[in-house]
Design a protein around this nucleic acid. Structure first.
Length: 735
DNA sequence: AGCACGCCGACT
DNA sequence: GTCGGCGTGCTC
């Protein structure tokens, strides 16, 4: 697909929700070269937009007089590599999403806005003579940012601390840096080329075997599912293989879940890996993100660590893709272009001819299925690395138990004993705020969100009622909205209340609460985790946030306050999620010398899946789950697509989907099942009514064909104007 | 998605 | 008499 000498027609993907590309003539005075992957500024309707050139041609389906001239070619050479162009095209086709919007989501903001693709020169700073002499403590509390920066510079010593390292933490570090340079404590220095490889911990037999298998793959390609129990040392395996790839002068792209990308993780990677590492996290400014992206594209960066969207980063010399915690939901984009980064990583790696490693302690059913069918190489790590012992796990039957803010007596007793023994306790509660319901004791009225089918959560500290689904927020009513009674009572408990109760149950015991509210401030998460790791905090409590990958060596007791969510949900993914959560959470217990204990509070201790998970572990659960899925013809034994619709008018989504259903039925392949339309599990959200139509098929092909035809037909459906609709291929949640 | 055109209600 | 509501159409 290269530009021919006479190629005059530019095929441009334009950021708008119309499928297909748009043809343009080259700019009037244009003498340079054109090649797919360059950005083009084009007139589009009445405005100017930035599109991506995806091809050139001598001819157009449109008459000459309909074609307009491109305004400018924005890049001298292609910005996107051929493989990313191919991937975007493939993804647009697979997810039935307009190609222009696919490019709009994969380009960094600065490039989407037409800014020049110029990379800032790499920078680094080191301590001056005066800087080495100064006591960091003297900067003290007055300038914590400056103090932290000096400390980093001291750690980096003569090599200097790089801009890339400073960006890991996010936020404004420039101001502090400039101040320190001004004071003569720091000076610019040439950025270090490579870092010495530090010593490596030894591997156990399983880790070694996994490493060997992966290194064999590096020679060729393929997909490996690295299925390792928590604490089995998956990261060590990644590090070895990555180092091996780096040695071959190839780049490595590492994708991690959204909350998994912490400065702590990046620091560990930096310490262990030679070469240049850039991280692509949400705390970067547009300019910083562009810089990191270009470093990857030009090949200046050797390791790229990022979340979902980093998958589309061009790589000059690709060698390996790693998807850590591959089962994590955050790899699937939940709006707009609903791609799954893990699935696309497999596609991209195959096209690049490089291996891809999917790592998890609790693999997704899809991945296990692929491993079973021999599509993926299944590498297992069954033993905890080092001296770590597996924890003991018990169910606590909540039926008839007296509860204190959701804590059963046995759990409180175990926590007390654990604290006495000097252990650290970790409690999970998947509900933030003080109480999920505020009830009028006189008439039964409850505070509800005016825009959603949901209750408002009472946040005591802020004294606000908040909707966790749409962000709606109000002052706490002094009186009942219905009868005027002032007897309003919080029902149920969230992390805020749990923290308060724990403070009174265990006075003088330092507690750290980690949830979205307590970590909203920049660096708050790091600070709380540091308190947890240092052992200063004896009780840690939090939401799912706390379940992901943080290394907390002293935790010896883990309590899951409510593991019944997901057991009886509407979404068939529910039990898989529950098992993953329980397993991940349990893995937090007893990672070091201390054997851990896990207590699961439940009202359904007899639930077969729960029993199975406890008795025989995640693999056994997965087999049972798989059998259920096979019997019900659910994924991975069939393929799903969801047509979602929402509108302010209550009836519009259903009317649209009914019309869509008829359309689908008329174009559908024989094998495709159509179900619905049905209201979404939460029908009203953020003031919009939502409904969905489900399409299902044993094999991918007929479903895909049906979706293509349906997508096309929907473009011209008049009812489509009255709703916001989207197609979700391989939906991960039915919300 | 944006943006304009166009045709009906309550305001200066 | 106009300002502005959102239905409809179009973007190479």
């Amino acid at each position: 697909m290269t530009a021919g000498r006479n190629a005059t027609i530019l095929q441009v993907a334009v950021p708008c929700p119309i499928p297909g590309t748009f043809d343009y003539r080259a700019p009037a005075d244009f003498t340079g070269t054109v090649a797919p992957g360059q950005r083009v500024q084009v007139p589009f309707g009445r405005r100017q937009v930035v599109g991506v050139l995806v091809g050139c041609s001598d001819t157009s389906a449109l008459p000459e007089n309909k074609l307009r001239r491109a305004t400018a070619i924005l890049d001298e050479s292609p910005l996107l590599s051929a493989d990313v162009l191919e991937l975007a095209r493939w993804a647009a086709d697979y997810y039935h999403h307009p190609i222009g919007e696919v490019f709009a989501t994969l380009l960094p903001t600065a490039l989407r806005q037409g800014k020049p693709a110029r990379r800032r020169p790499p920078e680094a700073w080191r301590l001056t003579e005066a800087g080495r002499a100064i006591s960091i403590a003297s900067l003290g509390r007055r300038a914590p940012r400056q103090a932290a920066l000096l400390e980093q510079a001291a750690d980096a010593a003569a090599e200097g601390v790089t801009a890339e390292t400073l960006r890991d933490t996010g936020g404004d570090w420039r101001t502090a840096l400039n101040a320190l340079v001004e004071k003569g404590l720091l000076e610019a220095c040439p950025p270090p080329r490579t870092r010495p490889t530090p010593e490596r911990p030894s591997l156990n037999e399983e880790q070694q075997a996994a490493c060997d298998a992966l290194m064999d793959m590096v020679e060729s390609h393929g997909v490996a599912l690295l299925d390792g129990v928590t604490g089995s040392g998956k990261t060590e395996v990644y590090l070895r293989v990555i180092a091996d790839v780096l040695q071959r002068d190839r780049q490595v792209l590492v994708l991690v879940p959204e909350i998994g990308l912490t400065p702590q993780l990046v620091r560990r990677f930096r310490q262990r890996l030679p070469g240049r590492l850039v991280s692509l996290h949400s705390g970067l400014s547009d300019g910083e993100r562009l810089d990191a992206w270009l470093a990857a594209a030009t090949g200046e960066a050797d390791v790229i660590v990022g979340t979902r969207s980093a998958l589309f980063t061009p790589l000059a010399r690709p060698g390996l893709l790693v998807i850590d915690e591959e089962h994590d939901l955050s790899f699937k984009q939940q709006d707009g272009f609903r791609y799954h980064a893990r699935d696309l990583a497999v596609v991209r790696a195959r096209r690049l001819g490089v291996p891809v490693v999917l790592g998890s302690a609790t693999p997704a059913m899809e991945s296990l299925h692929n491993a079973e069918r021999g599509r993926y190489q299944h590498l297992r790590l069954t033993r905890r690395a080092g001296v770590a012992q597996p924890p003991t796990v018990h169910l606590l039957d909540l039926r008839g138990q007296r509860l204190t803010a959701g804590l059963s007596e046995p759990l409180i007793a175990r926590m007390r004993k654990n604290l006495e023994e000097g252990g650290q306790s970790l409690l999970f509660l998947n509900r933030r705020g003080y109480a999920p319901v505020l009830l009028c004791h006189d008439c039964g009225w409850v505070a509800e969100c005016p825009r959603c089918d949901a209750r408002l959560t009472w946040h005591q500290a802020a004294n606000r009622l908040r909707c966790h689904h749409c962000g709606h927020e109000t002052m706490v009513h002094r009186q009942c909205g219905d009868c005027g009674s002032i007897d309003l009572r919080p029902i149920g408990q969230g992390t805020e209340q749990l923290e308060q109760t724990l403070e009174s149950l265990f006075p003088d015991v330092p507690i750290a609460r980690i949830d979205r509210d307590s970590t909203r401030r920049k660096g708050a998460m790091e600070h709380l985790l540091a308190r947890a790791r240092s052992g200063e905090a004896r009780i840690l409590l939090g939401t799912q946030m706390l379940a992901k990958g943080h290394h907390l060596p002293d935790v010896s007791l883990v309590g899951l306050l409510d593991c019944d969510q997901g057991l009886f949900g509407t979404d068939f993914h529910g039990s898989e999620r529950m098992a993953q959560l329980i397993t991940q959470v349990s893995g937090r217990a007893g990672r070091a010398q201390r054997p851990g204990e896990v207590l699961l509070q439940t009202h359904h201790p007899e639930h077969p899946l729960l029993q199975l998970l406890l008795r025989d572990g995640y693999p056994a659960f997965a087999r049972a789950c798989m059998e259920e899925r096979a019997a019900a013809l659910l994924p991975p034994f069939s393929h799903l697509a969801l047509l979602r619709a929402e509108a302010v008018q209550p009836e519009a989504p259903r009317q649209f989907l009914q019309a869509a259903r008829e359309l689908a039925a008329s174009v559908a392949a024989r094998e495709v099942g159509i179900m619905g339309p049905v209201p979404a599990p939460m029908e009203r959200r953020a003031g919009r009514y939502r409904a969905q139509l489900l399409l299902q098929c044993r094999t991918r092909k007929p479903l895909h064909i049906t979706l293509s035809r349906l997508g096309e037909a929907l473009q011209t459906l008049s009812a489509a104007r009255r709703v916001r609709w989207s197609l979700d291929v391989d939906p991960q949640e039915m919300i």
